[in-house]
């Protein structure tokens, strides 16, 4: 990883995302810095999740979707010819809004992803390391064979983070990872994110502006074009500047609660 020089983990250039003829996201240019947390904020329906899901090509499952522009990782366009979405997703992990552990044991939840990706090392060690990495080990070490569904919502979400880091991605996408959780679980996830950013680049979509302000280093503010209903990034900057001294009036309205 050290050999992969460059400041940015991932960049977008003139990125537009379409569902059929509808341009859901328009002309986005972002440079996501390595080992930082970048938050994407904005009102509902402005295309935050669509943009996030473009990074690991999850939008491919919507048959009518396609993109224009580029998403570059190490200089390679993720939507270029010969790029395999499966390989993209193995490099760029994702944690979802609602915890979605597999209906398997806690152990298998973590081992599964590693196994399908051809992991050859000691599986027990990997499971333990991943659970420790997600700050879940102490709570589940005695019930690894039990169903993941027996865990609480917050634990399930940390399990989902653990299974993601088990396959060693470079970037972790988080789609409102704490929105379905109680405040204490939310806090734990936020603390965990600070831990994770030592090794991973994190992009998080959040509704919660306080959360963005608390956890992120950079913030991208998205907004809809009134006429076309397409979403776009209107401002992208260091988080403290977005929240204290935004350049765009709309950003200011939004972060101060006068909008949405």
């Amino acid at each position: 990883m050290q050999s992969e020089n460059g400041k940015y983990a991932i960049e977008t250039k003139n990125l537009s995302i379409f569902y059929g003829a509808f341009e859901a996201v328009k002309d986005v240019d972002l440079q996501i810095e390595k080992q930082k947390i970048t938050a994407i904020i904005g009102p509902s329906g402005c295309g935050k999740s669509t943009l996030l899901r473009a990074f690991n090509r999850m939008n491919d499952f919507v048959v009518t979707s396609h993109v224009k522009g580029e998403i570059l990782m190490h200089g390679t366009n993720l939507y270029g010819r010969g790029i395999d979405p499966v390989e993209v997703r193995r490099r760029i992990g994702m944690v979802f809004q609602k915890p979605n552990p597999f209906p398997k044991s806690i152990y298998e939840n973590i081992a599964w992803g590693a196994r399908i990706n051809g992991f050859k090392g000691d599986m027990d060690e990997l499971v333990e390391a991943s659970l420790r990495g997600a700050a879940l080990w102490d709570e589940v070490k005695d019930k690894l064979k039990e169903s993941a569904y027996a865990l609480s919502g917050g634990q399930q979400q940390r399990l989902c983070i653990a299974r993601t880091i088990a396959i060693q991605p470079e970037i972790i996408l988080m789609d409102e990872p704490a929105s379905a959780l109680d405040p204490i679980s939310t806090l734990r996830i936020e603390e965990l994110m600070q831990e994770l950013k030592k090794n991973y680049t994190i992009i998080i979509v959040t509704h919660n502006m306080q959360q963005a302000a608390r956890v992120s280093d950079y913030t991208a503010m998205m907004m809809l074009y009134e006429d076309t209903r397409s979403g776009t990034v209107i401002e992208f900057d260091a988080t403290n500047r977005i929240f204290t001294n935004p350049k765009d009036k709309r950003t200011e309205d939004y972060v101060t609660g006068r909008f949405g």
């Binding site: 990883m1 590693a114 990706n117 051809g118 992991f119 090392g121 060690e125 990997l126 390391a129 060693q168």
Partner: peptide, 9 residues
């Protein structure tokens, strides 16, 4: 981390 990464193709 890097050591474990080596176990993935």
């Amino acid at each position: 981390m890097n050591q474990r990464r080596a176990h993935f193709p």
